[in-house]
Design a protein around this nucleic acid. Structure first.
Lengths: 232, 232
DNA sequence: ATATTAAATATTGGATCCAATATCAAGGTT
DNA sequence: AACCTTGATATTGGATCCAATATTTAATAT
């Protein structure tokens, strides 16, 4: 059947309709996933060679990531992966809490049993997951599942954006902190609160959960800073 | 003195260190200011000619604006100024309220008399201002002045970003609605509440103010939609 | 006459090329 | 010996050129 090949090409084309899109998506993943570390210099032609394209799609992609706050341009010097100061990380936790609690309050009344079960499914997978890199991704998927009703809204996108920015730090945190186990209990509680159907109570559980998570991150950052100070 | 020329060059260079930056800033202003209307097609070479540069800086700038959500790329067809649906506008009002109330609560305890006076100064200017286009800009400046302490934080940037997105719609609203006069009274109340130093009360005043503003916008949008429906 | 297909045109996406600038190094001068 | 200046090198910013694709128009067939 000719259609299969055609379909395959179409789908792979639709995935990334243009090189710029492809490069942007890949770089975004690379930065969030930690393949490109904070403050790391980005050499355009090097990346272009790696992707097998010219520097142009790379440049356009980098401009997008700049607007997203993931990279920073130093004119005539190059682009670097944006560095977040500890203060900013904690601030983002705060913003995240604000946005997500609001999102949850809006989502809870519309939550279907189907979505709740899907969220629990993710939690079950999380229980089995040992790879730290994947844990962050699935943690995000769990939380975003609860906001599934809001898909397509600005709020949903904003929450997702905050997640992406925080994720690479959360990931690092998780490698050092044994936070995964503890947070699972809170996740279960969160689902229970959602199922109960009380938006305010659910939001409160979420707030507590995120506060605890932020506290863990703060603790880790303080430790890192003390370490950095000692090295000087 | 050679320094003066040097300084002049430096400053004009620092303003826009690169063509891309210049084009991006100008286009951003153009879209927010309404010079480029919603849904309007953007022709790259046409813009390039207008700026007196090649298409390249334009392309890079457009990519940035795409990431900022101000324009949308249709592959191989071109870029259009992003269109906001009425739902999205109202949603952004909601998000704006959420973020700004939070910001205000954080800012109030740190508010100095100096900042308050500066805010009142802006209000005085607003009283005199009759040009609708400038009114939106100054309205923004008034509100942002109250968050001046937060300058440099993610929250501040986020609030500012929401403002920009909403501004072009607010501007349109103001031309039809006689909202300016009424909102000034609320602005004065807001400053008073801030001076009183009670974060929660100030936030409540702000919430009411923004809710009223959102209501006015909603009303206008409903009218427009009814009109559009009648034309069909 | 209308619909479908094919070709022409216009516009974007991507590659290559050139210019501007920043960094680094070396040499000279104080 | 240290600092400043000048030049060499590498890398980005910008321009031009070519290819890919979408739209539109015209022509042909039903």
């Amino acid at each position: 059947m000719v259609k299969t090949l055609q379909t395959l090409i179409e789908t792979s084309r639709r995935q990334y309709r243009t090189m710029t899109e492809m490069v942007a998506a890949t770089l975004r993943e690379a930065i969030i996933g930690g393949a490109l570390g904070s403050g790391e210099m980005i050499r355009q032609d090097q990346l272009a060679a790696a992707f097998g394209v010219s520097r142009m799609p790379v440049r356009e992609a980098l401009r997008q990531l700049e607007a997203e706050g993931l990279v920073e341009f130093l004119p005539h010097r190059g682009a670097v992966v944006a560095e977040l100061k500890p203060d900013e990380i904690l601030e983002m936790c705060e913003i995240r809490s604000l946005l997500e609690c609001h999102a949850l309050k809006k989502a809870v009344p519309k939550l279907s049993e189907d979505v709740l079960r899907r969220a629990e499914c993710v939690l079950d997978e999380l229980d089995e997951e040992n790879d730290v890199a994947r844990w962050g991704e699935m943690n995000q998927r769990f939380h975003m599942t609860l906001y599934d009703n809001l898909r397509g809204t600005r709020l949903y996108d904003l929450v997702a954006a905050q997640y992406q920015h925080l994720d690479r730090y959360i990931r690092v945190t998780l490698t050092q902190l044994d936070y995964a186990g503890k947070s699972q209990a809170e996740h279960r509680m969160l689902v229970a609160a959602c199922r109960a159907g009380d938006p305010d109570r659910a939001a409160e559980v979420l707030r507590a959960h995120l506060a605890k998570s932020a506290g863990a991150i703060a603790e880790l950052l303080a430790g890192q800073q003390a370490l950095a100070g000692a090295q000087r």
